[in-house]
Structure formats: C-alpha cells, structure tokens
C-alpha cells in the first residue's frame, strides 16, 4: 500500500521538483552546522566584493565573507523562523477553528471569527513594527509577528472544513454513539482535515520565508552578526551597481526555496485530492 502511494507521489512531477528544491535548502541549512566553505565570522577586507570564482563560487560580500557560506547559514534563520511561525499558527489556530466549528454561530464562534478578521487587518509587518518599537528588533520578534499572522489562517481553514464535516452522517453516528464534541473533533474531524492542514502548512512555510526576508531586510528581524537572507540583500543594496552578485544570489536562494515549497504544496494537494480542487477557496 505504501509502495503504491510512493509510486503515485513519484509520478507527480510538481511534487518531486518541489520536494527536491526544498530539500536542497533544508539540507544546506543542516550541513552548515557541521561544515561551511568558509567561516562566516571571518572578515577578509582585501577580498571584498569579489565576483564568483573557484575559491568563492558565489563571490564575496562587502566584508570579504564567502556568500555561499552566508547563504547556507542564513538558510537556518529563514527556515527556523518560518517553521516555528507555522507551528505557532497551527498550534493555536487549529484548536480555535475546531472549537468555533463545534459551537457554530455561538458567541465563542463570533468572537473567534471577529478576532480573526482583526488580525487579518494587521499584516505581519505591522505586528513586527509594534513589537520592535517596544522590545527592539530580533529574530524572535519576526517569529512572533509571522506566527500571530498565521493563527487566523489556520483557524479559518480548520473552521471551514470542520463545519462541513460536522454535517456528515458519520459525525451524527458518533453522536448517537454517545461521543462528545472533543472526542468527535479528535477522532472524526481532525484526521479528515489533516491533508488540508499539511498543504496549507507548506504554503504558510513559504510565505513565512518571504516575510522573514522582508522583515530582516528592513531591520526588524535577525540582527547582525547572525546571517540572514534579508539582511544580505539590505547590505547589497548600496553596492548593487558595483557588485550585483551580492544581491542576485541571496535573492535566488529565497526565490528557489519559496518556489520549491509552493510546488510541493501544489503537488501534495493533487496527491491528496486527485478530483481537482474541490475544497480550494
């Protein structure tokens, strides 16, 4: 059975390409803990802003640091921030969505949904601006800002899917068997929304990477000396006419990671639901 699933999965070109691209960057982040081409703390001013060469495949930055190594270490920040933000969003959003669906139309539902609407009016950037104004910039703030924004995304998705599942007869059968709302949510609702959550999780992961890059670009995210992709782009900006490679490679890293995750999300969706998007809205 799992062999059959694997065969279908491998036959899905979008999924395979997406998975490979994502694995490259996750792999790079993991490898960077053990080995990088050159220590990113090491500055080498005479070698600064050198275009790609054999010694530095992607060139060096304005402090003479190896850009490939910077990208590898920067991947850790991006991935860690985005993953934790997804965990926050799912951890809080899914239970809220399940609860809202159980008490459809109740005060609880109303409060949860209005709260969601409100958070939608605060893009992660605004949340980050407020947190940073009060606590100063850090990668942790980026995580919180992106995580908070993820909560209503998952809450809404879960509620919508759960509402339609609650009208199914098998839920009615479980109620006839004396099961309560919590048990039914755990046994019948949650397992049937997992696929949707996995797909949405991949999408929020990729959006998280974009958001983290934007926040560190404007100085609200990870602070030097921690390398991050957004920071690298900010540093490259004034040098763009003399050292365009400093801007091009970190940007490509973001683009390819996000692309990979998006393709993976699309592929997973097709894998889970071959009857072409019914639940997509």
């Amino acid at each position: 059975m799992s062999a059959a699933v694997l065969r279908v999965a491998l036959g899905n070109r979008t999924l395979v390409i997406g998975l490979l691209l994502s694995l490259v960057f996750v792999g790079a982040a993991l490898v960077s803990f053990a080995w990088v081409p050159q220590d990113v703390g090491l500055m080498n001013i005479p070698e600064r802003m050198k275009p790609p060469s054999a010694a530095h495949p992607l060139g060096t930055d304005h402090f003479g640091r190896d850009i490939l190594s910077m990208i590898m270490v920067g991947a850790r920040t991006s991935i860690a921030v985005a993953v934790v933000a997804v965990v926050i969003g799912m951890g809080l959003g899914v239970p809220l969505g399940l609860a809202a669906a159980v008490r459809r139309g109740s005060l609880l539902d109303e409060v949860i949904m209005r709260g969601n609407d409100l958070v939608f009016a605060f893009p992660s950037l605004l949340i980050a601006i407020m947190i940073t104004a009060v606590f100063g910039p850090s990668a942790l703030n980026a995580i919180i800002a992106i995580g908070i924004f993820n909560i209503p995304v998952f809450a809404r998705l879960t509620r919508g899917a759960a509402l339609s599942l609650w009208t199914r007869d098998y839920v009615m059968a479980a109620r006839v068997a004396g099961k309560g709302a919590v048990r039914i949510s755990a046994e019948h609702i949650l397992p049937n929304v997992t696929n949707l959550l996995i797909v949405q999780g991949t999408i929020q992961f990729s959006l998280g990477i974009l958001a983290e890059a934007a926040l560190s670009y404007v100085g609200l995210g990870a602070q030097p000396p921690i390398p991050s992709w957004g920071r690298m782009l900010a540093d490259s900006q004034t040098m763009i006419s003399i050292a365009p490679h400093m801007a091009i490679f970190p940007g490509m890293a973001i683009l390819l990671t996000v692309l990979g995750l998006n393709l993976m999300g699309d592929g997973l969706r097709d894998l889970f639901d071959p009857r072409i998007r019914r639940d997509r809205r």
């Binding site: 199914r168 007869d169 098998y170 009615m172 059968a173 479980a174 006839v176 068997a177 004396g178 099961k179 046994e187 019948h188 397992p191 049937n192």
Partner: peptide, 28 residues
C-alpha cells in the same frame, strides 16, 4: 437505540477500517 442514515457515502469516516466503524457504538 441506534440509527441508520440515508447517505451510504457520508455515513462513515473514510479513514477508519470497518471494524472500528462498526464497533463505534460500544462507546455507549
């Protein structure tokens, strides 16, 4: 008391095997 519903397709959780589906009322 037990009940049998109309829709043969919506009456069962697609993720459970028949033994689990059939034995659900044991919860009572």
């Amino acid at each position: 008391m037990q009940v049998v519903f109309q829709d043969p397709y919506g009456s069962f959780n697609p993720r459970h095997r028949v033994d689990r589906l059939v034995s659900e009322p044991f919860y009572l």
